[in-house]
């Protein structure tokens, strides 16, 4: 179920003195099973962009085609689109409203018009996906849960629609480190186990780098960079120029290359940075260090000279 975006432009309040273009002429295709990271600072248009993918916003110009259907056409069943593309908003816990967790998660499936047994089955499934215990939380008021748990319930509410594509807008915003790591691990698992396409909006490079298969970088409503994390993070200067920066690992290697060390420019995770540094260290001829490294590190990456 690919999502094709063709020449998407979105202008808020067109024709009024407050008119502003949030997205300008954006085209791309998202294939099944991708994990897309959408980067950009506040006001870059990333939230506006993802709200087009399930028809919450209508483009001023251009088309969005989901599963072969142009969802920007009149008369298209938006309910159908929303079953296919689930969107978890920023701070989604603020949308909870039902008396119990189970009822809240059931809201989406009920709107689709599923049978009672089907709804029940989906609620159990969705809560399981977000690693909450059905027996423990189903009958509890969502407002009695902790912040992190509320967020999981809200995500379950979207998962219960069984979307093929899941969009998450800043899913870790405002969480403490433990909560953040748990949510990220959960998203990674959702992507891996359910062959779900995931689109995650984030401004945290260290969060998104290890997860995404492709990054989209937005700036002032335009798609300015696109590629694998490796391809994007090596463009250090450009990322800095639009106020984004790169993961610390990539930043370190960049700084060392500036100092003249022959280090590769396409690494960013800490283990691969470690390997690159250790192999450089070993090549300096310190025999004892090289031995230790060979013993500790199973497959050290070849350090390639700076291009």
């Amino acid at each position: 179920m690919p999502i094709e975006v063709e020449h998407l432009t979105h202008t808020y309040l067109p024709g009024s003195p407050f008119s502003s273009t949030a997205i300008h002429d954006l085209s791309l295709t998202i294939e099944d099973g991708e994990f897309i990271g959408v980067l950009g600072h506040t006001g870059s248009g990333k939230t506006t962009f993802v709200q087009h993918l399930n028809g919450l916003l209508k483009p001023t110009e251009g088309r969005v085609i989901v599963d072969g259907v142009d969802i920007t056409r009149k008369g298209v069943s938006l309910l159908d689109v929303r079953r296919k593309v689930g969107l978890v908003f920023q701070y989604p816990e603020y949308q909870l409203f039902e008396e119990t967790v189970a009822k809240d998660v059931a809201f989406g499936p009920k709107n689709i018009g599923l049978s009672k047994t089907e709804i029940d089955e989906r609620v159990r499934w969705a809560l399981e996906q977000v690693e909450l215990d059905f027996g423990e939380v189903a009958g509890v008021s969502p407002f009695e849960l902790s912040g992190g748990q509320m967020r999981r319930v809200a995500i379950a509410g979207v998962l219960a629609m069984k979307p093929k594509t899941l969009i998450l807008d800043e899913p870790t915003a405002g969480l403490d480190p433990r909560g953040r790591r748990a949510i990220l691990a959960m998203i990674r698992r959702l992507h891996a186990e359910n062959s779900m396409t995931v689109i995650m909006v984030s401004h945290n490079m260290d969060d998104i780098g290890p997860l995404a298969t492709r990054l989209l970088v937005m700036n002032r409503g335009e798609l300015v960079m696109e590629g694998t994390p490796r391809e994007v993070f090596r463009r250090h200067d450009e990322m800095l120029a639009i106020g984004l920066g790169v993961p610390r690992g990539a930043e370190l290697l960049y700084r060392l290359r500036q100092e003249g060390y022959p280090l590769p420019d396409d690494l960013y995770t800490l283990p691969e940075v470690r390997d690159a540094l250790l192999s450089l260290y070993a090549s300096k001829g310190d025999a004892s260090a090289a031995r230790t490294q060979a013993a500790d590190s199973a497959s050290p990456k070849e350090a390639t000279p700076d291009a």
Binding site: N54, L78, L79, F89, F107, N111, G157, V158
Partner: peptide
């Protein structure tokens, strides 16, 4: 919030008066 509920299939626009009033709860 309206958009978030619409993303879960909520419908604020159609139906009779009672259905619409009920749709406001979420």
């Amino acid at each position: 919030i309206m958009k978030a509920q619409q993303a879960r299939g909520a419908d604020f626009e159609s139906g009779n008066l009672i259905a619409r009033a009920k749709a406001m709860v979420p």
